[in-house]
Design a binder for these strands. Structure first.
Lengths: 197, 197
DNA sequence: ATTCTCAGATGACTTTGTCACCTGAATGAG
DNA sequence: CTCATTCAGGTGACAAAGTCATCTGAGAAT
């Protein structure tokens, strides 16, 4: 026996999963409310019982992805078995992995959120949390006094590297370098800079 | 008296300008073929005489923007009055300026091009040219032997900084740092690194 | 037991991309 | 100069998709 709220929660979950699945497999163009509904086992109008509009649904998907990322980074940060350098590497890898495995979702995560204010706020909240976790990890490597300067640089740069790769602008043919090499170089440079002055 | 080809070329030009204008002022959602046609002084079906589909039109807009960027960077690179450091600064500024003044266009430029193969090819071509100019400028600063390593890093990083700023993920409130500071730090680091090791 | 609430279904409207077809003017052959 | 041709552009039509008004039936509250 399923209570009404349980059923509603399950549908909401199914809608989010359906939207994320369609986004992954077919890109933004494949995410239609009709397809989302069908995949979630409901009809085209049902999503409006859970989200004010399509944008809000997409933004909720982005918020969940950012939350998952924040969780991952938090877990890495809290793992006492890892060295600060390893934490940094794993944290950055987590970000790049999203870009590689779910390029459309990655784009959604870093696009200005749209939809109703509540959804937008949730996405920003999740993004801020993810960023906060990254800041903590970077701080463990370069020291608190350098965090303000280097953490944002590291994050934006790795995002740029990932974004360019995701969009096919990092073809190995022409650049003769991989995303990993770029990140390694960057981290080494920042590490050295923070150490020496 | 306007020959037929002149008229057609003018319409094509008007369509591209209209699409770019709508993109700038209203975002991707405002770019409908009907609106583009109206703004260009033709009707909804006319664009199909010049572009196979909407994606190809957008890709052509992106290609032109990339070409303009390449021209700008080329001009900077060729200016004998500028020092290598100034060229680098101006080249990177040109990129960031596009992001700030035309955020939607900027996104379009760095998104995987869609549409018919010819349009896609043109966009890639323009992108490659812009990249080549940047490579040249960076090479003038860090030396040819370091270009392969640092030019892509610089470009992807500055793109990431710009993209994050454009999408509102660089709020000064939380990061306590500006895009300019990030770029300055990055350039200084790379410069130092290339000089010493 | 009755009424209420709300998730979900359905029909309808609007916008938009796209295509088939039509039209008139510039062009090129004779 | 005349006429057939080519092609940019207009028009009608259709399907897909977002959105809303309305309806319905099953759980929840009284």
């Amino acid at each position: 026996m399923v209570s009404r709220v349980e059923s509603a929660a399950a549908t909401r979950r199914a809608l989010l999963d359906a939207a994320a699945g369609l986004l992954d497999s077919g890109g933004p163009g494949a995410v239609t409310l009709r397809a989302v509904g069908a995949r979630a086992g409901v009809t085209r109008g049902a999503p409006y019982r859970h989200f004010p509009d399509k944008d809000s649904l997409l933004t909720a998907v982005a918020a969940e992805a950012l939350d998952r990322l924040a969780d991952q980074v938090q877990a890495v940060r809290a793992d006492p078995r890892l060295s600060p350098a390893d934490k940094l590497h794993m944290g950055l890898s987590a970000l790049m992995t999203v870009g590689r495995r779910q390029p459309h979702l990655y784009r959604l995560m870093f696009t200005h959120p749209a939809g109703d204010p509540a959804a937008i706020h949730a996405a920003k909240q999740a993004g801020d949390r993810a960023m906060g976790e990254f800041l903590g990890i970077v701080g463990g490597v370069v020291g608190a006094e350098h965090t303000r300067r280097f953490a944002p640089l590291l994050l934006t740069s790795v995002h740029g590297i990932t974004d360019m790769e995701v969009n096919g602008h990092l073809s190995a043919d022409k650049w003769h370098i991989t995303a990993e090499e770029l990140v390694t170089t960057l981290v080494a440079m920042i590490d050295r800079q923070a150490r020496s002055g």
